[in-house]
C-alpha cells in the first residue's frame, strides 16, 4: 500500500514533466526538419549526438567553469556575508555603506569586463571577478534584510534571558532568524553568478570553460549544434547546483515547517 502510494506520488511529480519535455523535443525536431538549415536550427537528434561527439571537451570545460564560478561565489560570500551582517545590525554601518552599494548595484556585471581585464589581466581571477559582482549584491541585500528584520520581541526575549552583548545577540538570535533569507540570497546570487559565467569566459581568460568554448571555438566555426549542446549543459548544471543547494539548506531549516523546501 505504502509503496504503491509512493510510486503514485513519484509518477504524479515526474510524468507531466516528462511528457512536456518529450513534446518539446518532438516539436523542435519537426520545426528544424522543416527549416532544413542546421546553421539556423539544428535538429534535436543532432544536438543529442553532439553530446557524444564532444565527450572529450565537456568534462574539462565544466571543471574550468565551475572553478571560475566557485571562486566568484566564494569571494562574494566572504565579503557580502560579514558586511551584510554589520549593515543589518548597526544603523551607522548601513548609513555609511548603503549609498555606495546603491550606486554600484545597478551597474551590470558585464560592464565591469574592461576593468576586470585592466586589473586582473586575462586570468581566471578576472572571470571570477565578474561572477563575484553578479552574486555579491543579491547576497548582501538579503543578508542585511534578514538581520535588520529580526523581530524586536525576539531580541528582547533574548535580553531578559541573559543574552546581553551584540555579538551574542547576532550569533544566537539575528543569524538564525536571517538564515533562510541568506539562503535565498545565496540562491539568487548563484543564479546570477552562473549567468555571468559565459560572458566572463568570453574574452579568453583560460583555454577551457563552457563560455570560452562556445564563443571562441564553436561560434566562430558556425557549429550551431555544438553551441546548443553547451547551452543545454549550462542549463542543466545550474539546475543541479540549485537543487543540491536547496537540498542542503532545506535540511538545515526544518524549523520553518518545509517552507524553504517548497519555495
Amino acid at each position: 500500500m505504502k509503496v504503491r502510494e509512493r510510486l503514485l506520488r513519484i509518477m504524479r511529480t515526474f510524468v507531466p514533466g516528462a511528457i512536456s519535455l518529450t513534446v518539446f523535443a518532438v516539436v523542435w525536431e519537426i520545426v528544424a526538419t522543416l527549416i532544413g538549415n542546421e546553421r539556423v536550427l539544428p535538429r534535436f537528434s543532432q544536438v543529442m549526438i553532439s553530446f557524444y561527439e564532444l565527450k572529450e571537451y565537456i568534462p574539462l570545460d565544466i571543471i574550468q567553469s565551475l572553478i571560475h564560478f566557485g571562486m566568484g561565489i566564494s569571494f562574494a560570500f566572504l565579503i557580502a556575508f560579514p558586511l551584510g551582517m554589520l549593515m543589518g545590525w548597526f544603523r551607522g554601518v548601513f548609513g555609511f555603506v548603503d549609498p555606495i552599494v546603491e550606486i554600484l548595484r545597478p551597474i551590470p556585471p558585464l560592464a565591469w569586463i574592461p576593468l576586470a581585464i585592466a586589473w586582473f589581466h586575462l586570468t581566471p581571477i578576472a572571470a571570477s571577478f565578474i561572477i563575484f559582482l553578479g552574486a555579491f549584491f543579491p547576497l548582501l541585500i538579503n543578508t542585511y534584510m534578514g538581520f535588520r528584520e529580526t523581530p524586536k520581541t525576539l531580541i528582547e526575549a533574548a535580553k531578559v534571558l541573559g543574552c546581553d552583548s551584540d555579538v551574542r545577540l547576532m550569533r544566537y538570535v539575528a543569524l538564525p532568524h536571517a538564515l533562510p533569507m541568506i539562503a535565498t540570497g545565496m540562491r539568487v546570487g548563484m543564479g546570477v553568478g552562473w549567468m555571468c559565467v559565459v560572458a566572463a569566459e568570453m574574452f579568453g581568460v583560460s583555454t577551457n570553460g563552457l563560455g570560452f568554448r562556445m564563443f571562441t571555438k564553436f561560434f566562430y566555426n558556425h557549429q550551431i549544434d555544438y553551441v546548443i549542446t553547451y547551452m543545454i549543459l549550462l542549463g542543466i548544471i545550474s539546475l543541479v547546483l540549485d537543487a543540491s543547494f536547496r537540498y542542503i539548506t532545506g535540511s538545515l531549516m526544518k524549523w520553518r515547517g518545509g517552507v524553504v523546501l517548497e519555495a
Binding site: T153, A157, V160, L161, G162, D164, R168, Y172, L179, W255
Partner: peptide
C-alpha cells in the same frame, strides 16, 4: 535586564528555530 528578573511576553516570543528543549535551555547557555 538582569538574571534576577525574567519576562513572559504576551506574544510568547519563542525562538522558532529552536526546539522546545532548546528554547528552555537558551537562558542557561548564556
Amino acid at each position: 535586564p538582569g538574571k534576577d528578573r525574567c519576562v513572559v511576553f504576551q506574544e510568547f516570543a519563542l525562538f522558532p528555530w529552536r526546539t522546545v528543549l532548546k528554547n528552555i535551555t537558551f537562558g542557561l547557555e548564556n
